[in-house]
Design a protein around this nucleic acid. Structure first.
Lengths: 184, 184
DNA sequence: ATAATTTATTAACAATTGTTAATGACAATT
DNA sequence: AATTGTCATTAACAATTGTTAATAAATTAT
């Protein structure tokens, strides 16, 4: 993500240290349910989170978050409306948790961070647009190769069946694609 | 699109009437080629335009524009970088054409229109995000039914093979889907 | 250490979609 | 009026992906 190694956060949030709550969660903890309003934003100190949704009983992941990334169902967090996504930890994780009121206070007091938030929101949409184009343009195999090239850390760290839904296919199909590629 | 029946444009652009050039083009005219920088923005008085791109020799449409809609490869228009999309008329059309310099002047002089432009850009991304989710969530048949429900005018006006690429499938496959649906 | 759970692979078969080509309907051009 | 081009449908076959189920390996929990 764009804002991964951005120093704005670190520099600014130092001043508000006491507003953050450090939480430790095991793997497979739900941080936010589909349909809930996002009252918190998280910053990952250690671990890994996925965002996803259910469709016809199917669990679909469409974004992974790692160390130093801010995580929230941003649309819900900003609009105060029930979000369409859930958040779940993939590994035991350590998160800094900030509730919305405190976040809004910080934003009010620090224009630089308001700008940051806008960028975050914007980058989310940029992400969607790239993914959309890759879906109409590329085959699942091509999307897998893209992932291998651009985000290999995801493949190293995340169980394959989550990757499969991220690519829009089934785990079985991904396994087959990998097999075909390994013999090329 | 969000801004379709927006009056902001009409009210404001009245003042700049003389900057617009009315052009009449036959069907299948290229308004912008893939890889070109967008120097113009168009407003459709009459007719229909599609935006698309080529992928592995395949012509893929991913947006249709009709009367009263502003049309440009917005990313290119705003960034001044070569765009990844082409624009082509689907019908004989009458367009108001505004070049970028004049557009920028208008934007400078009218903050209300700057806001409008931001909304336009934002709505483009919103669109992408919805389409992306529909691609990982829904089958081609479901996407066709969505289109039938939400944008029936597209189906009435646009040749089916463009619709097919818009749905991410081949014309043959769309024809089959329609047949199956007609017997349900 | 053992048991339980999660994960990845594979097989067999079904369903869907792509590919190529042929056909007929229709519209536009000359 | 005849020709050309565009468009939608259909058929036959190939390729891909989904589905279900079985198995084995790896990980986690007790």
């Amino acid at each position: 993500m764009l804002l991964n190694n951005d120093k704005i956060l670190k520099n600014n949030f130092e001043n508000y240290k006491n507003l953050f709550r450090e939480i430790r969660i095991p793997a497979k903890s739900i941080l936010l349910n589909e349909g809930e309003i996002a009252h918190k934003i998280f910053f990952i100190k250690e671990g890994c989170i996925r965002m996803g949704f259910y469709n016809k009983g199917r669990d679909i992941t469409f974004q992974f978050f790692f160390e130093n990334m801010p995580v929230a169902s941003i649309e819900s967090f900003l609009s105060n409306q029930p979000g369409q996504f859930f958040l779940e930890s993939l590994e035991p994780s350590v998160l800094y948790c900030l509730n919305k009121k405190d976040f809004e206070r910080i934003i009010r007091e620090t224009p630089e961070l308001k700008e940051y938030l806008n960028k975050l929101f914007f980058s989310r949409f940029e992400r969607y647009s790239k993914l959309f184009l890759s879906f109409i343009r590329d085959t699942p195999e091509e999307r897998y190769l893209e992932l291998l090239k651009n985000e290999p850390h995801i493949l190293q760290r995340v169980p394959q069946h989550y990757i499969a839904s991220y690519l829009g296919i089934t785990p079985v199909s991904l396994s087959r694609i990998r097999k075909i590629l390994s013999t090329k």
